[in-house]
Simulated assay, not measured.
Amino acid sequence: MKVFVVLVLAIASASAGLLPQAVPVHPRDSTAKPSINGRITNGKNAVADQFPYQVGLSFLGLKGSWWCGGSIIDNSWVLTAAHCTSGASYVTIYYGATVRTSPQYTQTVSSSNWIQHENYVSLTVRNDISLIKTPSVTFSASVNKIALPAIASRYSTYVGQTAVASGWGLTSDTASAVAKDLQYTDLTVIENSVCQKTFGSLVVTSRVICVATPKGTSTCQGDSGGPLALDSTLIGITSFGSPDGCEVGAPAAFTRVTSYLDWIKTNSGISA
């Protein structure tokens, strides 16, 4: 994996609350050596077939390799974060894995097979979403899709509801061991106004969903692009967190899927 890519916000504004108290960083690894470390901090081990929609994504680009997560939304489509696909040439998709190194099978596709949001802006973490077109897969107990939110729910804030995040990100801020098992944790959705106190309103827009991270439980490096699910429905895509670490108690942020239902349908033909 790579170390966090620190996003330098160079947008000047005199309005209070626009600029962040903390610079948001993607949970994506940026070291020169390609490796895959850790898991969700202070999470639990998933059991076989618990998250059949979860995939692992091993990206390769000119600047090295990195690991992300993704969600199956159709036989031929995986949804992930734009900061995961950005700069990559190829991705190997790991399907049906609970033990990371033992997927049911893998597929490797090139960048010509994905659609990164045309208005993705890394500096302000805008439109952090990508679609990956894959060869068709056969669904099973280990490999299956997750539902997208219904159009009627696009105005739901989900505040106060508990959703589940999963992935193979770091187990702690000091972790160096390779993760063996898929991890998951329950996280409670918070008001965007609370999240804006940390990251500012230029970053935390209505198209972002934030969760609290009590007791050092959070998404971390390697979880980028992975799912935030509520009642077997995909409501978020792991996007960014605090530069101070995953266990410091700062909010974790996700791309709000309900804000991109039209974009997903236009580019893939998939709707709820």
Rank of each mutant, 00 (worst) to 15 (best):
L18R: 10
V159N: 12
G225D: 11
Y94T: 05
Y120M: 03
T157S: 15
V189W: 10
S166I: 00
S86F: 09
V189S: 08
Y184S: 10
C210G: 00
R28M: 07
D128L: 03
V3E: 14
S206W: 00
V121R: 03
S259C: 04
Y158T: 02
L123E: 14
G17F: 00
T31S: 15
Y53I: 08
G245N: 08
L62P: 05
G241R: 00
V25D: 09
V3P: 09
N267V: 11
G269P: 12
S89F: 04
S268K: 01
V99R: 11
V23K: 11
V257C: 05
W66C: 05
M1N: 12
Y53C: 10
I132W: 07
Q183C: 01
G38Q: 01
Y90W: 14
F254D: 06
V25A: 14
S224W: 03
A46R: 02
D173Q: 09
D181C: 02
Y120W: 10
I129H: 00
V109R: 01
M1I: 12
K197P: 04
T157M: 02
S271Y: 12
S166D: 06
C84H: 04
T185H: 07
V25C: 14
T162M: 04
T157A: 01
V99G: 00
F254N: 07
Y90L: 15
